[in-house]
Every structure is written in structure tokens, then in C-alpha cells.
Amino acid sequence: MRFINTGMTSIEEVFRQNGYITDRPIVTALHLVRTLQKPLLIEGPAGVGKTEIAKVLAQSLNTRFIRLQCYEGLDAANALYEWNYAKQILHIQMTENSGSSLSEKEASIFSEPFLLSRPLLQALREEDASPVLLIDEVDRADEEFEAFLLEALAEYQITIPELGTIKAKHRPYVILTSNRTRELSDALRRRCLYQWVDYPDFEKETAILQARLPGIDKQLADQIARLMKEVRSMPLSKVPGVAESIDWAEALIHMHQKELNKEAIYETLGCFIKDKEDWETVSREIEEGTLLNL
């Protein structure tokens, strides 16, 4: 089949080797990222492995992985480029008596060595192959930054007034992730392919645990996955993701637990419950025995 021959299986294979259990929709989405050269927007609750997708994609393509972590107040200077002011001032002081003209001085301080490349610029200037650019938690950045991002992603080129226009030699594969703390603009959504990643089902979670922690007992993995499924259906303020189940399983392995029991869960509750009220809710359920009667 053509679909298989275009490197889809290789992506899936590398994902598996890296301990990332994936499914058809994600593989298809990544395939489309490569064929259409469009950014991919991945949404989903926290801790389901959105960021991991980008990391593993970089590994599977054997290219550089560049990450731009978004936060409130992130601006172009921190995302794109900035002049190294301190170095420029030092340079001016040191060359004060060199006798060079003003324009020479200007040209020297606004040149490559004084440029601090930030993730977006790095991604565009990659020489060898298309890098994977992860724009993480884009919903945390302000709306103004989103507009700026659109501009950069539309043309894959950036103009620095002093240096000229920099055009990407190799278009980066762009992956954006969002936790839905804020609704993204329609313009950004339209520009991107879209993928929703949800909590894994029971089978997938067991597979993930086994892939991530090769030493894990099959029975323990089953129990953890089943209990997690129950916990996620409870009214918690912070629902544990896959990252938490892996942490928890690791803790249980270190404690040499072969199977779950009340004490073990109590001792390690902090691995996947991160809120006081949630703690009370879950321990009440454990006390009543509803969680352990699986």
C-alpha cells in the first residue's frame, strides 16, 4: 500500500521504540504534517503526551528538536531574536579609540555575533534538514503573540531590519500544543491541522506502561490502568494524566509492589493526586472499598 510505503510504518516503529504507543489518527496527522507542510495543532488534557509526540517525531526523523515554551507575556524578543545589548555596549567601549567611522561601528555591532537567536529564528535558520519546532502550550501566550506567530508561520520567513530577510532553507515541522485554557483564534486554527488527544483507554494505557517500564509486572500494569480509569471518572479538580500513571507505576516498582493494595495506594497517593480536595475524595473512595473492588 502506498500509505505504508511513505514512511508511515517507520514513524510508528520509531514511536514504539521510544516507548510511545501511538494510534492511527496521530500517525496520520504526522504523515500529513510531512506531506502538506502545515503546522499541527494538538489539543487535549494535561499529561496525555502531547509534547512527547513532537519529541518522538524529531527522533524518528533524526532532526533537531527546537522548543518554544509559551507563557503569559511572551513577546517577539523572547521568541524570535534579540540583540545582545550588553555585548554591544562592551564592544563599543573597547573599540572607542580604534578610529573607525560611525557606519563601520554600526555595521559591526549589528552583525551575527551580536544576535541572540531565539527558538523561532533557530528553526528557520537550520542548515541541514527540517527541524521539528514545538510551540508548547500556545494557549498560555497572549492573543497578540498568537497573531505574531501566524505571521511567522505563514511565510516561514522573518525580516530583521539590520540584517535583512531570513528565509527558511528547510521548512520546519511545526507542532503546537494547547491545554485549552483559552480559546485559540479561528485564524490560527484554520492555518493548522488539528488533532485531539484524549486520555488513553484501558488497553492503550497498559501498553504504554509496559513500553515505558519494561520491568513492570503485567498484573500490576493492568491494575494501575484500571484504577486510573476509575480515578479519571471521579469529579477531581486535577485529573491525573498518563505522565502521572507512569510516575506512580515507577514508584510502585521501586517499592517492590507486585500488586495494588490499600496500604500501597495510600503510601503513593501523592504520585497522581495533586490537590487537597482530590486527595480527600480519592481516599474516601478507597476507604469505602469502591476503588479496590476491581
Partner: peptide, 16 residues
Amino acid sequence: NQEQFHLVLKTILCSS
């Protein structure tokens, strides 16, 4: 392959 056809359309045409 119907599944692939479906997934491709879904990934491209949906945005939320």
C-alpha cells in the same frame, strides 16, 4: 482504505 480516508479528511477539515 476507508479508515485512512476518514482520518485524513478529519485531520485537515476539523479545527476543534
